[in-house]
């Protein structure tokens, strides 16, 4: 099983979409929320995702396809 710590950012009407619930319904990915800040027009949620590596990547690609931004909590590590 692989784990990834990521931040989802929702913009505009997406703030109201149950993206995290849908992710766990569509893919065998465990979601574990640690921090969040949701406002009317923008919101972010920091969470850990756990699942088989390939399923995890498919899940992240699906989240991105909804227009949600997905970034590592560490920020970019390339330097």
């Amino acid at each position: 099983m692989a784990k990834l710590r990521v931040t989802f950012t929702f913009v505009g009407v997406q703030v109201q979409d149950p993206v995290i619930w849908q992710l766990s319904q569509k893919f065998a990915v465990k979601t574990n929320i640690r921090r969040a800040d949701i406002k009317d027009d923008i919101g972010w949620v920091t969470l850990e995702l756990e699942g088989e590596e390939e399923v995890l990547h498919q899940g992240i690609e699906w989240v991105r396809s909804t227009g949600t931004e997905v970034e590592l909590v560490t920020g970019d590590v390339i330097g």
Binding site: A2, K3, L4, R5, E53, L72, T74, D76, V77, I78
Partner: peptide, 13 residues
């Protein structure tokens, strides 16, 4: 770059 960042985070774990 996204792929490089993600892979390296996984490798570090």
């Amino acid at each position: 770059y996204d792929d490089v960042n993600r892979l390296c985070s996984e490798l570090a774990d």
